[in-house]
Computed example of a mutant assay.
Amino acid sequence: MPKYVMWGSYCEDVLEKRVPHRQAHLDGLAAQKESGVLITIGPTKDLTKVFGIYEAEDEATVRQLVEADPYWKNGVWTEYFIKEWIPAF
């Protein structure tokens, strides 16, 4: 199954803005991980970017997951892009 890399950006006031959406965000990611579609995801240390790796049938599936996330719906993530990834090792 294809793998996809997702890079995104956080809003400037991420620590405050994410608070009311954080648990729903983490619960959703845990469900994605359990289902096998999410390999890993997390912020950069400076909390400006998010990076994730997904394994899905197609890019549209990954886009649906990202756009259903409370962080996207509530402006915590402000932009994202997805590229199909071919792991060498």
Score class of each variant (00 low, 15 high):
78 T>L: 06
9 S>Q: 15
37 V>E: 03
71 Y>H: 07
81 F>L: 08
71 Y>Q: 03
34 E>I: 06
60 A>K: 10
36 G>R: 01
19 V>Y: 05
33 K>N: 00
59 E>M: 15
24 A>E: 15
20 P>A: 01
19 V>R: 11
57 E>A: 11
10 Y>A: 06
22 R>H: 10
55 E>N: 04
28 G>M: 05
64 Q>A: 10
80 Y>D: 11
33 K>H: 04
56 A>C: 03
43 P>L: 14
25 H>T: 00
34 E>N: 13
64 Q>T: 08
74 N>V: 02
82 I>Q: 12
58 D>A: 08
39 I>D: 05
30 A>M: 05
49 K>D: 07
9 S>H: 15
77 W>I: 01
23 Q>V: 08
74 N>Q: 09
38 L>D: 06
3 K>R: 01
27 D>M: 00
80 Y>H: 14
13 D>K: 05
76 V>W: 12
82 I>S: 09
35 S>W: 12
14 V>T: 12
52 G>E: 12
59 E>C: 15
2 P>N: 11
38 L>S: 06
39 I>M: 06
58 D>S: 11
24 A>D: 12
39 I>L: 11
25 H>F: 03
27 D>T: 04
55 E>Y: 03
81 F>S: 12
7 W>R: 15
22 R>I: 07
36 G>D: 03
24 A>L: 14
18 R>P: 02
54 Y>N: 03
76 V>M: 14
59 E>N: 15
80 Y>M: 14
82 I>C: 10
73 K>Q: 08
42 G>P: 00
45 K>I: 09
2 P>M: 09
52 G>Y: 07
32 Q>Y: 14
9 S>W: 15
31 A>W: 01
9 S>A: 15
8 G>D: 00
80 Y>Q: 13
41 I>S: 10
41 I>R: 07
13 D>M: 04
52 G>K: 11
74 N>C: 07
62 V>A: 11
23 Q>G: 02
71 Y>T: 03
33 K>R: 05
21 H>Q: 11
53 I>M: 06
32 Q>L: 15
23 Q>F: 05
7 W>A: 15
74 N>A: 13
56 A>V: 02
29 L>D: 11
77 W>L: 04
3 K>T: 03
33 K>Q: 01
69 D>A: 02
58 D>T: 11
79 E>S: 12
65 L>F: 14
41 I>A: 14
8 G>W: 02
15 L>W: 05
29 L>G: 12
73 K>E: 09
17 K>H: 07
53 I>G: 05
17 K>W: 00
29 L>S: 13
80 Y>F: 13
73 K>F: 06
33 K>E: 05
12 E>N: 10
18 R>F: 04
